[in-house]
Simulated assay, not measured.
Amino acid sequence: MNKKYQNLKFIINNILGVFNSLFIIVLSVIITLNLTPIYKIVIKKYRLSEKNGITLEEIMNDYRGLINYLQNPFIKKLEFHNFSMSIQGEIHFQDVKRIFVFLYIYMIIFIIILILYLFLKNRTDKFIYQEFINKYKILNISANYLIIFFILLITAILVDFKKYFTLFHKIFFRNDYWLFNPRLDPIINVLPEEFFMILGIIILILIILQVIYIKISYYRNKS
């Protein structure tokens, strides 16, 4: 095997590893977003119902409505039953919705490509798939990238979550509408910063579980 071929193989496997690691991150984020029982625990722990003079079920109803809005491209307008909302707040949630719609599109495209890969694998030269594109190496590479991501994220949470939470918003949003005014957008009173930190930890747990599974599969196959 010449050096040029080895380099090309290395580049392709790493590119595919990056796409696979992104898929795992996206999948973990979407799973976490839909773990609505976690939010009920947060409401009770931080006494959000008592502090805001609204029942737990009313808060949960609006939260479920928010989650449905963020994930359903056919829901065009967000409406809360128990909270007022400013124009800036509505724009921010529209921006968040665009991010989640993009994540779903990425997942769908990735799954379609994966199905095509599995379909073509049995109908073309197996050398290409067994040697040139090694699925176990790709998975191992993606696991290595995820470990780096895990270390960076856990460091951000432990060192200064608020600082990096702010940085995250500055990177992904083109305005400062995410800086909610509690008087104009009281929904922020029932979405404490601690809740987002908990979601971040859950995402990390899901990622590390998948990394462990990938590493075990890789070394079993290698041996």
Results as ranks from 00 to 15, higher is better:
187 I>P: 01
79 E>R: 09
74 F>I: 01
21 S>Q: 08
216 I>K: 13
154 I>D: 13
7 N>I: 12
165 F>G: 02
183 R>Q: 13
120 L>A: 01
180 F>E: 00
149 F>N: 04
89 G>Y: 02
85 M>T: 06
219 Y>R: 07
217 S>V: 04
201 I>T: 15
62 D>G: 01
155 T>D: 03
27 L>P: 06
112 I>M: 12
11 I>P: 00
8 L>I: 15
85 M>H: 09
188 I>G: 03
106 Y>H: 02
17 G>L: 11
82 N>I: 03
43 I>E: 08
178 W>E: 13
142 S>H: 05
13 N>M: 15
29 V>R: 04
193 E>W: 00
37 P>R: 08
169 H>S: 05
214 I>S: 04
65 G>Y: 01
56 L>E: 13
22 L>C: 13
49 S>G: 07
216 I>M: 03
56 L>H: 10
198 I>R: 05
72 N>A: 05
128 I>T: 00
86 S>P: 07
215 K>T: 02
2 N>L: 13
163 K>Q: 12
51 K>E: 14
26 V>D: 03
192 P>W: 01
127 F>W: 11
200 G>W: 02
60 M>G: 01
210 Q>E: 07
219 Y>G: 01
66 L>E: 04
137 K>M: 14
197 M>R: 13
190 V>I: 15
178 W>N: 12
177 Y>T: 08
137 K>G: 07
139 L>R: 06
83 F>Q: 12
192 P>H: 07
151 I>E: 04
13 N>K: 09
164 Y>T: 06
10 F>T: 09
3 K>S: 13
151 I>S: 02
75 I>Y: 04
192 P>T: 09
183 R>A: 15
29 V>Q: 14
178 W>Q: 09
52 N>T: 00
58 E>G: 01
155 T>W: 09
54 I>G: 04
153 L>C: 15
161 F>R: 12
206 L>W: 08
92 H>W: 04
48 L>W: 03
119 F>Y: 14
168 F>Y: 00
44 K>A: 02
2 N>W: 15
1 M>W: 10
161 F>C: 05
36 T>C: 03
9 K>G: 00
30 I>R: 13
80 F>K: 13
165 F>E: 07
177 Y>D: 14
82 N>V: 02
221 N>P: 00
97 K>T: 03
125 D>V: 00
193 E>V: 11
67 I>T: 10
